[in-house]
Design a protein around this nucleic acid. Structure first.
Length: 116
RNA sequence: UAAAGCAGCCGGAUAAUCGCACUUGAAAUUAUUUUGAGUGAGGAAAGUCCGUACAUCCAAGAACAGGCCGCCGGAGAAACUCCGGGCGAUGUGAGUCGGCGGAUAGUGCCACAGAAAUGUAGACUGCCAAUGGGCAAAAUGCCACAGGCGAUGGUGCAACGGUGAGUUAAGAGCUUCACCAGUGAUACCGGAAGGUAUCAGCUAGGUAAACCCCGGUCGGAUGCAAGAUUGAAUUGAAGGUUAAGGUUGUUCGCCAUCUUCAGACAAAUCGCUAGAGAUCAGGAGCAAUCCUGAUACCAGACAGAUGAUUAUCUAUAAACAGAAUACGGCUUACGGGCUGCUUUUUUAA
RNA sequence: CGGGAUGUAGCGCAGCUUGGUAGCGCACCUCGCUUGGGACGAGGGGGUCGCACGUUCAAAUCGUGUCAUCCCGA
């Protein structure tokens, strides 16, 4: 898990991020980026796996945890490209990503971060 | 040894690095940071099929309606719950399964087939010359008119207790006989369900997971997003202040500002986890379960915590699956492993 | 977390109340009509009634369990 100040929490913030419509896709993971930020507050990140992706909570939680963990490692190493210029990011997992390993998910997320 | 049955248990472990939630100690400092310690998903957390606690609102009396339950006894807060027993079904057996009151309270339905499908039925197909009657007069003769009978009928899930004998004109539970099924009465055994024995000719289908009858039982609704408290910006109403500010030169008024009340989106706190609880020991009981004592406090989030990587071990770590107010059940899913008892067949002793 | 509904032929739906025969439209196949196709006419095939167990002589229909899909409320 990420520390609290890095998490995207409010429903309105999620809606605002989706509204920007700046998205890209890689290996079953979709990244939505919000607006560019003006001050030095930390970039907030949300992770979403819909109930339509899979019925069982264990499978959905597993995918969310893998995405979260790989983002955390990139953030710790400073290997996140230009992503920290944005106010908010949302990673959305899809059906294709369910069966993938940590290494595959990690490389997908790295690609997405470099694209920004 | 093989094949089965039942009961119970486990549901990866250890170490390293990075990381999260809550509690708590310390330091810096004044709302955050750093650091130490502790705790951190299940046997089903699932499905949401039952039952409760708890909370708010309505009603607080009675009756009807309606729902639910349905062998007996016990346990339990209660339950579509559990334990023991009875009966029935099933299996070679250990065992397993059972929504298991009433069909003589009434109503409905029973396709097709069949003479007939519930009404103590017999129209039809049939059987009968014993009785009455007629014909005949040689008869152990003929006639189905009055009658007797319910055996016979290519049916059907089901045909008015079953099979076999005897009796008879023909026949029939006829009550005469043997064996069997049910029902009732009596006696005995049992705490009860029920069981055993004897006697009685008493024997009119099935369906109540069709309506229903009988007995028992039930305040209703909504669910922790229940509900309680706080509450910045802001909105409305009422009142006050001109000490300062804006609007014009001044006053009033308006803005502003202060107080009170009301409403209220985002939000915060409580509800929230010390319990019909957990572990261990002893006792009562066939058991479910109950009693006593000791020990420790053991998830509590709110975009929602247990993860990632590596190494070693056992059987290659690989099943079903993630708490959201709590508890008791039921049901369903599940790779693999362990323990105990029992049965059957064969072999050996 | 709570509530409601639906699973029947390739597709869309009846039938379930009151249990005995599964039917309608489109689509499909064959034949006719036409120079050929379409339309039209005639005929035909196709369904473990989501799954399992039970009640009943008999179940798409009644009961219970289970699976899947969809919708609604906060």
């Amino acid at each position: 898990m990420l520390p609290k100040q890095y998490r995207l929490k409010k429903k309105s913030a999620f809606k605002a991020t989706y509204k920007v419509k700046n998205s890209s896709h890689s290996g079953g993971v979709t990244l939505f980026a919000g607006i560019l930020k003006k001050d030095e507050s930390p970039t907030k990140v949300g992770f979403v796996v819909s109930k339509k992706v899979h019925k069982r909570a264990v499978r959905r939680n597993r995918l969310k945890r893998l995405m979260r963990e790989s983002y955390r490692i990139f953030l710790k190493n400073g290997d996140v490209g230009n992503s920290q210029k944005y106010l908010s990011l949302i990673f959305v997992g899809s059906e294709n990503a369910l069966e993938k390993s940590f290494a595959e998910i990690s490389s997908s997320i790295h690609k997405l971060l470099m694209r920004l």
